[in-house]
Structures are given as C-alpha cells and as structure tokens.
Amino acid sequence: MLIAQITDIHIGFDPDNPAEYNRKRLDEVLDVLMEGPNRPDLLLATGDITDRGDPASYRRLANAFSRCPFPVWPSVGNHDLRDNFRDHFPGFADENGFIQYSVELPELRLVTIDTLEEGRHGGAFCDRRAAWLDAELAKNADKPSYIVMHHPPVECGIEWMNTHSDEPWVHRFTAVVRRHPQVRGLICGHLHRSVTVAWEGRTVAICSSTAPQVSLDLRPIDEDHPDDRPMIVAEDPAYALHHWNGRELVTFYDHAGAHTMLAKYDERLQPLVRELKAERPV
C-alpha cells in the first residue's frame, strides 16, 4: 500500500493569473505521482489546499484533481473555509459540519480530523471534534490507525510557526489519542517543511508544501525588530510517500524538480543487486 501526501497547495494566492505559480507547482507534483515509478493507491491533500478559501480556487483545485487516476482525500487547514470546501468537495463532513472522516484500508485506517478555526492561524480542536474522534477510534480498536491533520501538535523549532504544547486544543487532542493505543502516528502539514518527530510514543510525519516553503531558520525571532531574514523560499515543490510494508508506515520525502541520475541499473550493477538481496532471509 502506497499513500501519497501533498499539503499547503495555496491555490488562489495569485487569483487573477490563469498560469498561477502555485497551480504550476501542484501540477508538477501530480505529474510525478501519475507518471513516475511510485504511483500511489491514494492521495492525501492535508489542508491549506486554497489560499483564501474562495469558491473559484476550490473549483480550480477540483479540476486539477479530476485527472488523478487514484482517489484524492482532501482536508482543511487554516487558509480554508469550510462552507466553500463542502460546496466543492461534498461528502467529507461529519454530523457537525467539520471535515472529519475515516478511510478504511485493508490493513490500516486513516482518520482525518479538522483543526481549523476560521480567523486563526494556529490549530484548534473543540469538544465536539474530540468526541467524534474518540468515538471513531473506538469503532475499530484493533486496527493500526493513523490520524491525518493539518496542524502538528508539536513545537517544531521554527519559532513563528510553532505550536505550543500548552495550547488547549493540544491538550484536548492528546487526551483522546492517549486512550487509543492503535494510533501509530500522525500525518500532518502546515509547516511548509519536511519534519519527523516522536510525540506521545508515536511518529509525526510532516510533509513539506507544494507551494513555496518556509525558510529553515531555527533562530529566535523578535516580533519588534525585523532582521531581514528569509521567510519564504522557492525550493522545488514537495510531496511525501507513506509506504505500508505490512508492519509499519515508512515515510519518504521527495520533490518534483530535476533528479540527476548518477548510476543506473544495468549489467554493471546487477551483481551488487544480487549480492544485497542474497544477504537477506528468504
């Protein structure tokens, strides 16, 4: 089972441009997923799929996804608006209107939750959403499960993008997860960087963005004294591949830019491949 992830697409950042830069970057990643050697079984789009939450951007995004030969499972981030999301991506809301649902796969479950509070950059997770997650996880307590969400509940070290561990929503979310040991890990976005971190005995895999990335700068930042540091950088558009090997989810991070080939599998490398495979148990 191969699960692809894209995040922080930010369609509509340049709304009047039919050749929008963020749309071009998205299409580059989709081309790699569709035409490359690692075509996924499904694609997760983990929030901030639009920049302003406007209907036109959701229409353009739905059009972009329509050419994918695999199912696409979208979710919301702090740049999205639920009403417009539901109008263009129906069928993903729970009974309270939050964008929360489960994907049942043969050997594992993906449980998507909604961490959006409209008007706030950081995450949110209210009692109603927590109750839904608690009940949803209780439905199949023996199946390995991964929670898909936009905001990671961890301090990443990029100070202006941090989530503080004492935020109420983090406590509420953590309390639910602690009751369900079948939750193996979290699949997140939001940071515009590829990050992996241990949290509550689980692995948090955070995918970088298809839109331009947040600069990797771990120095403290002073809101009263701008220092001209880079904030956003245009590295190649990124994606993740989460490979279920039958025991655990193995995450790879890659990008859609050029990959210079330095060696290829030909007769010269065939002995090495044979030797490596022969070392392993049958």
Results as ranks from 00 to 15, higher is better:
Met1Trp: 03
Ile3Tyr: 07
Ala4Glu: 05
Gln5Thr: 07
His10Pro: 07
His10Phe: 05
Pro15Asn: 03
Asn17Glu: 12
Asn17Gln: 10
Glu20Val: 04
Tyr21Asn: 14
Arg23Asp: 08
Asp27Gly: 02
Glu28Ser: 07
Val29Ser: 00
Leu33Asp: 00
Met34Ala: 00
Met34Lys: 02
Glu35Thr: 00
Glu35Leu: 06
Gly36Ile: 01
Asn38Val: 00
Leu42Thr: 10
Ala45His: 05
Thr46Ser: 12
Gly47Leu: 14
Thr50Asp: 05
Arg52Gly: 13
Arg52Leu: 13
Arg59Met: 11
Arg59Gly: 04
Asn63Cys: 04
Ser66Thr: 00
Trp73Arg: 15
Trp73Tyr: 15
Val76Ala: 11
Gly77Lys: 07
His79Met: 13
His79Leu: 11
Leu81Thr: 10
Asp87Ala: 12
Asp87Thr: 08
Asp87Gly: 05
Phe92Thr: 04
Phe98Gly: 00
Val103Tyr: 06
Val103Asn: 07
Pro106His: 10
Leu110His: 12
Val111Ser: 10
Ile113Asn: 07
Asp114Ser: 13
Asp114Thr: 04
Thr115Gly: 02
Leu116Cys: 02
Glu118Tyr: 14
Gly119Val: 05
His121Gly: 10
Gly122Ser: 08
Gly122Arg: 11
Gly123His: 09
Cys126Arg: 09
Asp127Thr: 11
Arg128His: 02
Ala130Cys: 13
Leu133Gly: 03
Asp134Val: 03
Asp134Ser: 08
Ala135Gly: 14
Leu137Asn: 06
Leu137Gly: 03
Ala138Tyr: 04
Lys143Ser: 02
Ile147Trp: 07
Ile147Tyr: 04
His150Asp: 06
His151Lys: 01
Pro153Asn: 15
Glu155Met: 12
Ile158Leu: 10
Ile158Met: 06
Glu159Met: 01
Glu159Phe: 02
Glu159Thr: 03
Trp160Thr: 06
Asn162Pro: 03
Val170Phe: 01
Val176Trp: 00
Val176Arg: 01
Val177Lys: 14
Val177Ser: 14
Arg184Cys: 10
Gly185Leu: 04
Val195Cys: 10
Val197Ala: 09
Ala198Pro: 14
Ala198Asn: 15
Ala198Ile: 12
Gly201Leu: 14
Gly201Cys: 15
Arg202Lys: 14
Val204Lys: 08
Cys207Asn: 14
Ala211Thr: 09
Pro212Gly: 06
Gln213Cys: 12
Val214Ala: 15
Ser215Lys: 13
Arg219Gln: 04
Ile221Leu: 00
Glu223Gln: 05
Asp224Ser: 06
Asp227Met: 01
Asp228Tyr: 08
Asp228Pro: 04
Met231Asp: 08
Met231Arg: 14
Val233Ser: 12
Val233Gln: 11
Asp236Gln: 13
Asp236Phe: 01
Pro237Lys: 01
Pro237Glu: 06
Tyr239His: 11
Leu241Met: 13
Gly246Leu: 09
Phe252Ala: 14
Tyr253Leu: 08
His255Gln: 11
His259Trp: 03
Met261Pro: 07
Asp266Tyr: 06
Glu267Pro: 13
Arg268Ile: 10
Leu269Ile: 07
Gln270Thr: 13
Val273Gly: 08
Glu275Met: 11
Leu276Arg: 15
Glu279Ser: 15
Arg280Met: 15
Arg280Val: 15
